[in-house]
Amino acid sequence: MITIKNLTKKYGNLKAVDDVTFDVHTGEILGFLGPNGAGKTTTVRIITCYMLPSSGRVEVDGFNAFDHSLEVRKKIGYLPENAPLYSEMNVLDYLHFIMGLRDIPKDRFNQRASEISEICGLEDVIHRNIGELSKGYKQRVGLAQAMVHDPEILILDEPTSGLDPNQIVEIRNLIKELGKEKTVILCTHILPEVEATCGRVLIINQGKIVADGSPAELQSSFQGKARIYLELRTPDVDVIAKLLKIKHVEKAEPISTDETDLKKFALECAQGVDPRENIFHKAVENKWIILELRKEQASLEDVFRQLTTS
């Protein structure tokens, strides 16, 4: 659906996007991740024809985004960061304004407006001025604006910023629902959002793609240390020294507790080995009472941190 080849965008000497190549397939929800300033918004602005790249190519459904910009813009629904809207307009007028510019026939305006306001939950505020709305409602108006022409591609730049937890869940479900038939690019730096909604994740850092795959693939590719959480009850004082003698345990860090007998540790070991059985035997040997012993999955957050720092 979207093909991006060797995309580079320079601002002066700074490369905001540096030789980025990727495809987005129909019906995919792509999570576009990256720290602030990594080049997410710039990439998205190029796909939506707001900017031209310094070099490289963007094709949307077979149309070159620079030569057939109007065709491409017709296929895309775009919600920019912070949902910039006209605060002095009321919601319905604004939707009509966008529908007119999207060449939706006038006799379908009312029907489409009520459909879209139902989908986005705008019925209660449809006659209110946008400026009076809460951040959450503004975000929904922005979403409605992006979907009003039923586009094949939906590009959302941080759609849940400023929403309360309930609204975030609602918007995520909405995006999931939409993703069944549409191609969605979701820019965000909120990781649980990606885990909850996206089938594929693309991580960008300093203008370069550093990871591409499903959330599960990314987690299994994590290169760092595996972590084990251990909770013991014992009067023993040199537990750490004993723990470090266990095969594969490379690091043992105590977590402070209120009780002197209760001891908690975060252990680190190499990826791919499992020292839990050894820990159990060691505990039996020393008569420690194990209250909890669990291996912690590398989260997407770990992957993200590893790829985007240093």
Binding site: L70, E71, Y78, P80, I98, L101, R102
Partner: peptide
Amino acid sequence: KSGTIEILLTLPVK
């Protein structure tokens, strides 16, 4: 300033 220009310029208008 408000950023609404970004929506306008990504609509299919000249």
